[in-house]
Design a protein around this nucleic acid. Structure first.
Length: 469
DNA sequence: CTATGGCACGGATT
DNA sequence: AATCCGTGCCATAG
């Protein structure tokens, strides 16, 4: 079990296997902790300093050229480029691209929402302001909206309302963006302000939210088009922008209906473990997938330590040998982990390219089991790798990796579209029939379930036919 | 009588 | 082995 001769890349010992398994299921954050503790307790491990690509400025693995820049230039590479990217500070894409409106990215396991927000803005506040902010943040609901009037806070602390507003502004700029707003409308506007600083926004977006929020929330697009005297198409584009980039309930993950859906576990995602983007930000180019290694540099067995062992005292030799053993095992497991995730993501990206580029409707229902046979690993390996991880899509959305394996997401999406476009309120049975016409065979009962999942009301309670046509 | 939601069962997934 | 999900049956509301 404990031989010193080199091993191939395959897992050989049970220890190796077990540790790989464990590492596989860790998120980037957890992995960092693990590595740090290993690094601290084992002198045989060392951290090699980082290298950056001179042209694209990405962090590089210790050997070899930049996977992005040096990748084949031919246009017809179908295959996504996947590589492991060591970076200590992986705050999304650093605000470079359109990642502006990530879903929840605070970790529920570590902090609650108030703490999470306060920590972000604490440095901008003095002591008294901090107290007010803390009080402010304890009065948020599950959606991240403020439950009491601003004036009440002002009275409570005997400060002018403007002071509270000022603090609110700062809170709204923290993640999840728009948190601490008084209403969904305000949250949207706050997010819009933020977005506007880095990106162009459709001209109508602001006016729609400001003036016709009620129409917007009821999806009455025809009315909107009339109100603003523009084409329905323009409205659709603007609304698409809004739904894709803004979120009326900052602490909730997606925007269903304005209705209070009774049970909607406020999904919380961790920070992304994997980043996806297009090469040169060009959607026709292959996908670039970075698997985050939460480290500034690369881990390896310290060669000095390895050679020093020969000159060590006899009594220390055993300890050192043990350290060396553990270090090399750890590194190998890490490689194994990254290798597995790399292969997994490569396959997933190839399969789900349509989903990644074009939206939820195009998600193929793939099961973990299917992928496991394709990759020649055990099902549980995939399960572990997929669980608890988050992926940032090229458009900036952060979704659980597990969503790639959602069996019903595409059907739900089509269902939403059907209801969106319906002339009159369709019953579940009718929807079921329409769906099967489009190739989705779902029972009537299941339609009802999907509806509920999406927070859509039953037919008789839905909009009584807006004057389309 | 029709449309839905609740409960529960069986098969698939993890 | 435990859990999740789609579905059928039945009660209930409209």
């Amino acid at each position: 079990m404990f031989q010193t001769h080199q091993q191939s890349l395959r897992p050989l010992t049970t220890a190796h296997l077990a540790q790989t398994m464990t590492l596989l299921s860790l998120t980037a954050d957890e992995l960092r902790e693990q590595i740090e503790s290993e690094l601290a307790s084992n002198p045989a491990l060392e951290l090699l300093e980082e290298r950056r690509c001179p042209t694209c400025h990405r962090l590089l693995p210790p050997r070899g050229a930049c996977p992005t820049c040096s990748s084949p230039k031919s246009e017809e590479i179908e295959e996504p480029i996947v590589f492991v990217s060591p970076r200590e500070d992986f705050n999304f894409s650093g605000g470079m691209t359109g990642e502006d409106m990530p879903e929840d990215n605070y970790s529920s396991t570590v902090e609650d929402l108030p703490t999470f927000v306060l920590r972000q803005i604490a440095s901008e506040l003095d002591n008294s302001e901090r107290t007010i902010a803390a009080y402010f943040l304890t009065h948020l609901d599950d959606d991240g909206l403020l439950t009491i009037p601003l004036i009440e806070i002002a009275r409570y602390f005997h400060v002018p309302l403007s002071k509270v507003e000022e603090i609110q502004k700062k809170i709204q700029r923290a993640e999840p963006y728009g948190v601490g707003s008084c209403s969904p409308q305000e949250a949207l506007l706050a997010q819009l302000d933020l977005l506007e600083e880095s990106r162009e926004i459709p001209p109508l977006a602001r006016s729609i939210i400001e003036k016709e929020m009620s129409l917007l929330s009821r999806h009455q697009y025809a009315e909107l088009a009339r109100a603003f005297k523009v084409s329905l198409r323009t409205i659709h584009q603007t609304v698409a922008f809004i739904t894709e980039n803004l979120n009326p309930f900052p602490a909730r993950s997606h925007w269903g209906d304005m209705r209070q859906s009774t049970e909607m576990p406020p999904q919380v995602y961790h920070r992304p473990d994997i980043l996806m983007s297009f090469l040169n930000d060009d959607p026709s180019k292959p996908l670039v997938i970075e698997i985050i290694m939460p480290l500034n540099g690369t881990l390896r067995v310290n060669p000095m330590f390895r050679s020093a062992i020969h000159e060590a005292d006899q009594d220390k030799k055993d300890d050192w040998k043990n350290d060396l053993e553990r270090a090399s095992l750890f590194v190998k497991c890490l490689q194994q982990r990254n290798h597995t995730i790399t292969r997994l993501m490569h396959r997933v990206a190839a399969l789900q390219r349509n989903f990644i580029c074009r939206g939820e409707k195009y998600l193929k229902p793939v099961t973990r089991a299917q992928l496991s046979t394709e990759l020649g690993v055990h099902e549980s390996t995939i399960s572990r790798a997929v669980a608890n991880k988050a992926v940032q899509l090229p458009n900036g959305r952060i979704i659980p990796l597990a969503m790639f394996f959602d069996r019903s997401l595409n059907v739900r999406q089509v269902l939403k579209e059907i209801i969106e476009k319906e002339a009159h309120s369709l019953s579940d049975t009718e929807i079921s029939e329409l769906l099967s016409e489009q190739g989705y065979q779902v029972a009537r009962r299941t339609v009802a379930k999907y509806r509920a999942m999406e927070g859509i009301l039953p037919a008789h309670l839905r909009r009584p036919a807006p004057g389309v046509g």
